[in-house]
Design a protein around this nucleic acid. Structure first.
Lengths: 325, 325
DNA sequence: TTGTACGCGTTATCAT
DNA sequence: ATGATAACGCGTACAA
């Protein structure tokens, strides 16, 4: 690979001058620019980003840690984050924590060692202390680490209200919420709170089932649904913690001879694209994934540039009507 | 951030010695190691990977270019690739080409500039020449760039045979294949060839519809299916180019009053996890995604290490019986 | 306007 | 066994 020196030599100038042209620093005559660019072209020169990063102590890399890219929600979110990172001239280092404490810890270490400019955290297996200590621009999804670490989330409480109200309006009187482990420090917990509050306000009976650990083990949801229908066969409304869980609920209904939405109404959360391919199309509370991705990147970029950022970034949700309600 | 010099100072040795300890080069007394490690610990030192990479001219980063991580198949594949990269001590730089020629080109440039050790290409919008020129360890999925660039793919032809044979055995006599643009240089084209061959061999009528461009525009598939049922209302067997397309086909059947599998049988390709959540569960030809990911990473690693690698890596497929056949 | 010298943090070479 | 020195490729004060 040609270096800046090779270009300098070919263009008959010093490396410094080439660097100046490269970064448009100070005045540069057209003749000079032309000469240098020609040399670059001829050598098919690309500045070595490693050297640049080392010298500027800035890598233009953002680390993204999420549980699983293979889950629809995280896949879509990652896609948006990648797009906005790209637009801002940042590269994205992808890390799947797989909800594994050790892997997540190792990844944080790896990212620090790689001198990423910031980390977007969508995985939360560790205690807050671990995140606080890393002393790097950080943004989290759905979790409040400390007052000075910004987070992005959808309006979980409003979403929970929206979903629950809809079920009640449609006539449901025996509600159930199925979700992941209700870590109190995770903001998605607000979906459940809103669910319980709204049901209470309307005097509607409700129950809820959660997985033991904070995993995305899908078999756990199958068991939970089986348990739900066994213990409460008269359930007529389900608010699922994600669209994926909603899809499982839909399946469980079919397999137990319940028709949706006639016998049981179901609404999910997230608003993943595949939602509409199911039958019936799954109703959901749509998170503004593009805006969430855009904002997460912006919050990193601003921190890198030393600009102040808002700590709380709660984005509005929207009802995405399907046919399961 | 502390540097190697800080560690050296604190441990009372030279930076060179610290580097030796760090890389286990030559003989190192236990006392020395202990001393150095203690200093590192105390300072919470992490070697700067940028500097290491620059010095070793090796970044331990693999670039992954795919059309969209948000598509289930690519999401799952990316997940496997990430896992295997991680196990091999590599980091993954994620690039969504979005099937955009310019973006893909810019990404290749960016990856070269970032001195990634190799590129795994799952996106193919450019001409072969562009890939040949990049002079970097490369692995492609489902595309043969040149005899010396290894590729990984599922046994597309066998998969096409398997799917088509199944449809015929189940009694289908009017077959249709729905797929993406049949770029002749894409190996997934073999799925279609096998489909046509197998139908011919059994004397079964067949037709096929493809999108114009090689995009993943899902609306295009909706139109295609609408067109299919309009022009050939008596279709009773569909081989879809992907499970996602199969899901669209399933939906189109429902909306046109066809029941699956009674009136129309459907089989997809890929074997994505969500396949089983549909109703009926989508039958599919399963690609060995984990093995594909493992192999892709291995092929990069081996090239980096200078080991010879096989050019053709065709992995066996498997019938994943669902309820749509 | 352009070039020299040095620093970014690490590794490799060559001494000692 | 350990250390001084140069080199990796680039950016940037400072000087001219």
């Amino acid at each position: 690979m040609p270096t800046i020196k090779d270009v300098a030599l070919k263009a008959g100038v010093s490396a410094t001058t080439v660097s100046r042209v490269l970064n448009s620093r100070g005045y540069l005559s057209d003749a000079l620019k032309k000469k240098v660019y020609a040399a670059m072209e001829e050598l098919n020169y690309r500045p070595n980003e490693l050297a640049r990063s080392l010298s500027r102590s800035r890598s233009n890399i953002i680390g993204l840690i999420i549980p699983h890219v293979s889950l629809p929600f995280f896949g879509e979110l990652t896609s948006r984050i990648e797009e906005h990172a790209y637009r801002n001239g940042y590269k994205l280092l992808l890390c799947n924590s797989q909800q594994d404490k050790i892997k997540e810890l190792e990844y944080i270490d790896m990212l620090r060692a790689s001198r990423v400019d910031g980390i977007i955290m969508g995985s939360h297996t560790l205690e807050v202390e671990a995140y606080r200590q890393m002393n790097l621009p950080l943004v989290t999804f759905d979790r409040q680490i400390s007052p000075d670490i910004p987070y992005v989330c959808s309006d979980n409480y409003a979403g929970g209200q929206l979903a629950t109200t809809l079920l009640i309006e449609k006539g449901c009187r025996k509600l159930a919420h199925i979700g992941g482990h209700p870590q109190l420090n995770l903001l998605s917990h607000l979906r459940y709170e809103a669910f319980a509050d709204t049901a209470r306000e309307h005097g509607v009976w409700q129950t809820s089932l959660h997985t033991d650990n904070n995993s995305f083990d899908m078999q756990a949801y199958e068991r939970l649904l089986e348990q739900l229908f066994r213990e409460h066969p008269e359930i007529d409304g389900i608010f699922a913690g994600s669209d994926l869980i909603a899809a499982y609920a839909l399946k469980a209904c079919r397999e137990s001879g319940r028709s949706v939405p006639e016998n049981v109404r179901i609404i999910g959360y997230d608003g993943i694209a595949l939602r509409s391919l199911f039958h019936p199309a799954i109703s959901s509370i749509r998170q503004p994934m593009d805006e969430m991705g855009r904002l997460a990147v912006e919050l990193i970029v601003k921190q890198v540039e030393g600009t102040a950022v808002a700590a709380e970034n709660i984005l509005p949700v929207e009802l995405a009507q399907g046919a399961t309600t």
